[in-house]
Design a protein around this nucleic acid. Structure first.
Lengths: 208, 208
DNA sequence: GTCTATAGTAGGATAGAC
DNA sequence: GTCTATCCTACTATAGAC
């Protein structure tokens, strides 16, 4: 990848961070990249295509950077801690809510929707791996669909990132509350047989 | 409110639903409203101001429509059911993800960010009331910050709405998983004294 | 209050020189 | 590969007729 192609991708991410999806244009991207506006079309054909490339690249590099950290996670609270770390680092680096912004843009363009779905799937795969490992022998795994749970975690994370953009204090409080909730689930796990028995009888009652 | 002013608001919501925030302009709104483009500026001064008015109006009416249903909720799973109902009805009516789209736009405009934060706060207030009522005497309330939890629930809901826009099946699966998780928490509540004791000792260990 | 017309600006995209 | 120049379209916003 030539220097300019990469700079255009970085510029795209910068604009996304500073002005959101509504601030995106070939001209704003080129300005942020220190490149000529025409190069967006020369290298990528269209703004949407550059947006898609930036989304792929940013997600792939973040997922790769966090794969080991996910592997090292041994509890739900640790998973949440890695999530918060990830979020804090994205804030610092300026990759914040790229996915959130593209999720919003996906409403307009099928092309963007596809790319964003693929990017999100990369995160879901990682989280699913972690959850599957963590929940072995847990009552949670007995009743909850792990792939579904991984999707819920990913979507919720993105909602929190968006929320953070408009109410930082509120988002912080939300994260604290989730952290406290994770303790609950861990306790549930530790209860082991008792919980499991209660759960089974309860499940019979709700009769799904 | 005159007929045209209202139609412009409805048109704004229609465009938001069909094309997302990136599809918003005075012209697209006017077309959807069956009105003249200049009337956007006559009645609202600017597109952003109309966007803000639409956000306020849509949220206020939805919150009012769901206030009674929230009041009737007696369990976490019922709360989730109301949430899913709300989501389904928004899908049908076309108010989907107005907040999500404006959350994304809030990155660009302080004006929009403020309005969106205020709208979200309306939902948070309702959810906080429900949670506070549901969690009386529950171990959850003993450790988790209820206002924080209400914010987490709201943000997660919005993340799921956005996710639904790009992967309907995945979002459905996520919601099912959350539903199953809610059973867990209810069981935890029913365990009562045992769970509470385990929780307290556990809390001492994590020593927050 | 609503319309037409229009000024002025920003954006997507391409042609062609270098 | 990169630049300038440019076309065309779409946008915001306002002026002024009705």
């Amino acid at each position: 990848m030539t220097d300019t192609k990469q700079r255009l991708i970085d510029g795209t991410l910068t604009v996304l961070r500073d002005h959101g999806i509504t601030g995106i244009s070939a001209r704003t991207i080129a300005a942020a990249a220190g490149a000529n506006q025409a190069l967006v079309f020369y290298h990528y054909g269209s703004v949407d295509e550059l947006l898609a490339a930036a989304c792929r690249e940013a997600t792939a590099s973040r997922v790769a950077a966090y794969a080991q950290r996910f592997d090292a996670v041994t509890s739900l609270r640790e998973l949440l801690a890695v999530g918060r770390e990830l979020h804090a680092e994205e804030l610092r680096q300026g990759n914040v809510s790229v996915l959130a912004q593209l999720l919003a843009a996906g409403q307009r363009s099928e092309r963007i929707a596809e790319t964003t779905a693929a990017a999100l799937r990369m995160w879901v795969v990682e989280i699913e791996k972690v959850l599957r490992r963590l929940l072995i022998g847990s009552p949670v795994a007995e009743i909850a669909d792990v792939p579904g749970l991984a999707r819920a975690v990913s979507a919720a994370f993105i909602g929190l990132e968006l929320y953070e953009g408009i109410d930082e204090a509120g988002a912080g409080r939300a994260l604290e509350a989730i952290d406290q909730l994770a303790v609950l689930i861990e306790v549930m796990d530790e209860l082991g047989p008792i919980a499991r028995r209660a759960l089974r009888s309860r499940l019979k009652r709700v009769a799904r």
